[in-house]
Design a protein around this nucleic acid. Sequence first.
DNA 1: AGACTAAACGGACCATGGTCCGTTTATTAT
DNA 2: ATAATAAACGGACCATGGTCCGTTTAGTCT
Lengths: 214, 214
Amino acid sequence: MVRLLFPGSKLGPVTSIPLRPEPTPAAAERSDAARNRERLLLAARELIADCGTEGLTMDRLAERAGVGKGTVFRRFGSRAGLMLTLLNDSEADFQARFMFGPPPLGPGASGLERLIAFGAERIAYVVEFGDLVLAAENASRGRFEVPAAALWLRHIEVLLRDEGFDADPWLMAGSLSAALDPERLLDLVRRHGVPPERLVDSWRDLVTRVVAAA
Amino acid sequence: MVRLLFPGSKLGPVTSIPLRPEPTPAAAERSDAARNRERLLLAARELIADCGTEGLTMDRLAERAGVGKGTVFRRFGSRAGLMLTLLNDSEADFQARFMFGPPPLGPGASGLERLIAFGAERIAYVVEFGDLVLAAENASRGRFEVPAAALWLRHIEVLLRDEGFDADPWLMAGSLSAALDPERLLDLVRRHGVPPERLVDSWRDLVTRVVAAA
DNA sequence: AGACTAAACGGACCATGGTCCGTTTATTAT
DNA sequence: ATAATAAACGGACCATGGTCCGTTTAGTCT
């Protein structure tokens, strides 16, 4: 658990679940470590801007940032961890919007409306950050241990319950969540040329049917 | 398209979509190539039996089979290709059963019954061949290009249409298919200890709801 | 049998993610 | 200021999937 600024708000820090958990949030970071972290993140963004996500290798990143390779791995744990870190801000923003933002995504709308909006936003998010999300998916032990994924799941589950869904909402939330799998969405958009709006339509249809029979 | 024996049937060869497409089905295999393929498959099964799927590396496999590493890759293309080949028989069997076998999996039952049975069988399949399926998933360009996957998708789509589902059955088939994703299923079974029957129940609930509103 | 050719072979080689451990350095206590 | 210490550093090293290309060989044609 880490405190992040709620972007564009005067309300001050809000609690958010980071995409990647910080190892030791208690101890303050040593100055050289902080400097290298900045250098690395900068270099990573430049590298991605120049050569795309594919072009970012850990060796190149280390060289470009002027640090040793070991430093890169101590900081981010793995390539996927780096990508997760790169996505952290936008992910925190997304979380804030579906947890505290205005309806229909945030509280105030019905469970179904919020489910629909959630899918639509997630689809937009995946389409926007495509390669990054894909590169972040290969986390060490499966993509299901990412803390943020657990949050989305729980969110969907709660919305299902709101709609009176009683039969194993946790598993159903997982099934719905699977329909938003980034690899699938990007395959549909990129290889099959499916327009995102059509994905949103299909998602709406899916959740509507699932909730309707409740 | 390759001809495979319909297992346990007197009906002779039936058409089946292989898990992994053969590069040049026309040209006959040279004798040394055939011998090496046998050696490799044997060695692969032994290695997996001894050290598990993780323990099978391409170098070790080559050494154990007594062939060069290049031979391994020419034969199977990639590690995932090898796993796909190892799964080919059971996959052909699965295909035969849902396409031509007895109801409720095969023709003769309603679309909904067949959908439910399909999911149940798929779950059992994934649980049985867990590691192999997982290792086969990292196919070159995503797990959506595997020909067999296209067949399952099409199957689900047809069954949806049978049930009068009109709104974008192809995308809906994909969403349902995503709920059967092996990585998810195995994560649920292994990490969360969810019994397969509960997965089947949830799948039944899902497809019933999707089809009900049609 | 001998020559010819296309296919198969093999293993050195490469790229890349990730680990290890001896060395350096920021920080803190005295 | 100096010493002590825990953290950070860096780059050699490893494992593994995958490629390349010069060499060998099975099958065929005469």
